[in-house]
Design a protein around this nucleic acid. Structure first.
Length: 295
RNA sequence: AGAGGAUUAGUUUAAUGGUAAAAUCAUGGUCUCCAAAACCAUUGUUAAGUGUUCGACUCACUUAUCCUCUG
């Protein structure tokens, strides 16, 4: 059986529940693969495992940063690999669970990030001018789309800092097995909508209000679903009801993008979740893992 | 009941009688440090019908639905 099991899937499909049940049966520890659960104080909107859930199984890489910290996939890759090596030495089985595809992929595949990354924003240059500069470095390079300024700037920075990027994104450096959870799109959307309603009932608004001061310095709060939408409420541009709808919509969009990533970037073994009898889903996954072991 | 007005994409709204359009939603996709991010692409429409006209979202009539006013 693989030492590392990865659980992915769209938001709201039941990844947390499966990860805990599976970890208990396999005596494994869980590593968070979610870019927002990394942060302290962002509990309700991030759908982080509850304290009660976390007490059942050892969890890693949750609550390791303040909301004002900048934590990126570069940090994650470093932290998670260290952790994987340590747990492997102790012969611990590992379950990585989360919805942030790039984070998980960078942990397991041959991705190189550079720590000497000095980022220049090139505010004075238009996208066309950035493209021209990139071409001056290397003419036959694959360009991001001309409107995708974020990627264009990143690429130019890399070239100017002479950072090599390997081309082995499909080469796994840690053997692993990917379990994907899925369900009907309509039903998933219904679950997402209900979950957002639940978040509001569970005092998401109070959580956000208590973080109001942090919005000035925090990047997550300004970009994470369930948090960024409140900015328009604070500036009196939208009502709470509108904020709630926006969170639902952004969550649905997010789920869609997650499917695209997990379908195309991983060798995902998909399982349909039986929400009426979740133990059935767990047993299916365990049967699958057993079968893999025998091969 | 009567009078007047309205009806265009799932939604909100454009279009002198001359190629039906935009925003948004929805759907599909891209991916080597903002990734819950950023970006790309695509489907779909004149309420139903009859007439006038070379040609109708546009004019006339019928029907349906909705709104306002009067009683």
């Amino acid at each position: 059986m693989q030492n590392i099991i990865v659980i992915v899937g769209p938001t709201g499909v039941g990844k947390t529940k499966l990860s805990i049940e599976l970890a208990k049966k396999l005596d494994a520890e869980i590593i968070n693969g979610d870019s927002v659960s990394i942060y302290k104080k962002l509990n309700i909107g991030s759908a982080k495992p509850t304290k009660e859930e976390q007490s059942q199984v050892r969890h890693h890489l949750i609550d390791i940063c303040e909301p004002s910290d900048d934590y990126s996939v570069y940090n994650y890759q470093k932290d998670v690999r260290l952790l994987i090596d340590n747990l492997t030495k102790k012969n611990k089985r590992i379950i990585i669970v989360g919805g942030t595809g790039l984070y998980i992929k960078s942990a397991l595949y041959d991705y190189n990030f550079s720590k000497e990354f000095t980022s220049h924003t090139y505010d004075e240059l238009s996208n066309e001018e950035i493209i021209e500069k990139i071409r001056n470095f290397q003419n036959n390079i694959d360009l991001p789309h001309k409107n995708n300024r974020q990627r264009l700037v990143r690429l130019l920075n890399k070239l100017e800092n002479n950072i090599e990027t390997s081309n082995n994104k499909d080469k796994a450096v840690y053997p692993h097995l990917v379990i994907g959870l899925t369900t009907d799109r309509d039903y998933l959307y219904e679950r997402i909508n209900n979950r957002v309603d639940e978040m509001f009932k569970n005092n998401l608004f109070e959580e956000v209000t208590s973080l109001k001061e942090d919005y000035k310095t925090s990047r997550v709060l300004n970009s994470a679903i369930g948090y960024k939408e409140f900015i328009n409420y604070f500036s009196n541009k939208e009502t709470l009801a509108e904020v709630k709808e926006k969170i639902k919509q952004n969550s649905r969009h997010y789920a869609k993008r997650q499917y695209t990533f997990f379908n195309h970037q991983f060798h995902t073994n998909w399982f349909n979740v039986d929400f009426n009898d979740f133990s059935k889903t767990i047993n299916e996954v365990i049967a699958f893992l057993d079968k893999q072991e025998k091969i």
